[in-house]
């Protein structure tokens, strides 16, 4: 029994667990919008595109999150501009821009090593997170949560029916930028927890899991946030025992929860849809 409490005896573990839970929750809240808007590739792209900012921020002595955020937003703006000008498909433009940004980041990191080493940035290393970095994560999460709680209805309308939002006089250009900024900000916050390659999981999986379980957006937000936070907490906790990558554990856990929902969800799960199809095949006897 006491074995189960061992992780809590280490201050770094407690910090890691709590921070993972927080970031898991914030990312999950945002993931509801990302999955419905169909922005998974964008999430993946921005989480890679923030990397050069980390390196540059270190060179000029800024907090890493500021540099990373700026790099992420710049990448997003470049994508928008390039897409409009070149007429290429959006997914291709995103692919080009984020890989270039990311490659630039890798090159900079290989030329000028910073406080966050390459491994940390790519795979995350929440166990070694420093207190100033925790502070940055807290600030980013706090601001993101505040903005999301205040503006989630507008963002929902924007994701659901952009034309209607515009005809009501909502500033959809602003909402678009807001969603991109939130995406970049949470990608920055999640960078140290799970690493650039896996941030997109935090930004997609909980939302999709919740989407399988409910038809109401309000409930979807609640379910996603709880799943995300719980996976963050438990994943970090488990990683102590199997002594493996924390980010990997969190994401594997999230994927597992998704798969469970995929099979067993009451209405949209595979078991139920199979059953419905079987019933439909039976001769009608009413």
């Amino acid at each position: 029994m006491t074995d189960l409490l061992i992780p809590f005896e280490y201050a770094y573990m407690v910090k890691a667990i709590l921070v993972s839970g927080l970031i898991g929750g914030v990312c999950a809240f945002l993931s509801c919008f990302i999955t419905l808007k169909g922005w998974s590739l964008m999430g993946d792209a921005l989480s890679h595109a923030v990397v050069p900012g980390v390196s540059l921020a270190w060179l000029v002595g800024l907090p890493f999150s500021v540099g990373a955020f700026i790099a992420g937003v710049m990448a997003a703006l470049t994508m928008g501009w390039l897409k409009k000008k070149s007429g290429l498909r959006e997914d291709a433009v995103i692919g080009i821009v984020f890989t270039s940004w990311f490659a630039l980041g890798l090159l900079l990191l290989s030329l000028y090593p910073s406080n966050l080493n390459l491994r940390t940035i790519i795979f995350g290393n929440i166990l070694a997170i420093s207190d100033p970095d925790i502070l940055q994560v807290l600030i980013i999460s706090g601001v993101s949560i505040l903005v999301l709680v205040m503006k989630w209805r507008d963002l929902l309308l924007y994701c659901f029916d952009e034309v209607h939002a515009r005809s009501l006089g909502l500033n959809t250009g602003f909402l678009h930028l807001l969603l991109l900024s939130l995406l970049a900000a949470t990608a920055v916050a999640a960078l140290q927890t799970v690493g650039a390659c896996l941030v997109v999981a935090m930004l997609v999986t909980p939302g999709a899991t919740a989407y399988l379980l409910t038809d109401r957006f309000g409930k979807m937000l609640v379910i996603a946030t709880i799943t995300g936070a719980a996976c963050g907490l438990i994943g970090a906790y488990i990683s102590y025992y199997i002594n493996g990558s924390t980010g990997g554990c969190i994401v594997v856990l999230q994927t597992f929860v998704f798969l469970v929902a995929l099979v067993f969800a009451p209405k949209h799960g595979l078991l139920n849809t199979r059953r419905q199809r079987r019933l439909a095949a039976l001769p009608q006897t009413s």
């Binding site: 419905l36 209805r153 507008d154 929902l156 659901f160 006089g169 957006f217």
Partner: peptide, 25 residues
Amino acid sequence: VDWTFPVSVWDVVMMGRYGHMNFLR
């Protein structure tokens, strides 16, 4: 319209009121 979007009839009609509501909707 994305008909798989997780919103109810009530939610959609309420969206018509957004323009008239305050900052927090």
